[in-house]
């Protein structure tokens, strides 16, 4: 499933989608950036509540297909701008992380 399809199906709001056709090949959840850095796989959808700009660096380096900010963690405009610049798909939802995971799990299965 592509990031764009997931966004449409789930209602996860798109804040930046420079690569709508990227395939979501897995899921990773985490807020400790170093932890995510060492464990998230290329193509994963990364669910987090972190919204500082370092999220974009970690997303770029790990090659995740998109970042899904959960629990209504609205980022500032700087993060959105950076996501667009660096080519990172950025979505947001008001769902709690667990609920968002359930939804994504179903959508991907």
């Amino acid at each position: 499933m592509t990031v764009s399809d997931l966004s449409k199906q789930s209602g996860f709001r798109s804040l930046a989608m420079p690569f709508p056709d990227r395939e979501v090949s897995g899921v990773y959840v985490g807020d400790l950036l170093s932890w995510v850095m060492g464990r998230a796989n290329e193509g994963d959808l990364w669910l987090t509540i972190m919204t500082n700009v370092n999220v974009i660096a970690v997303a770029t380096l790990t090659g995740v297909s998109a970042v899904l900010l959960c629990e209504d963690c609205e980022p500032d405009s700087e993060l959105i701008k950076l996501a667009t610049e660096k080519g990172i798909n950025l979505l947001v939802t008001d769902k709690k992380i667990y609920e968002a995971c359930l939804f994504v799990g179903e959508a991907l299965s």
């Binding site: 400790l32 950036l33 170093s34 932890w35 850095m37 972190m50 500082n52 370092n54 999220v55």
Partner: peptide, 14 residues
């Protein structure tokens, strides 16, 4: 900010 997990050097080694 999500750092300071004590994973820096271990991740580098890994």
């Amino acid at each position: 900010l999500g750092f300071g997990a004590g994973m820096g050097l271990p991740n580098m080694k890994k």
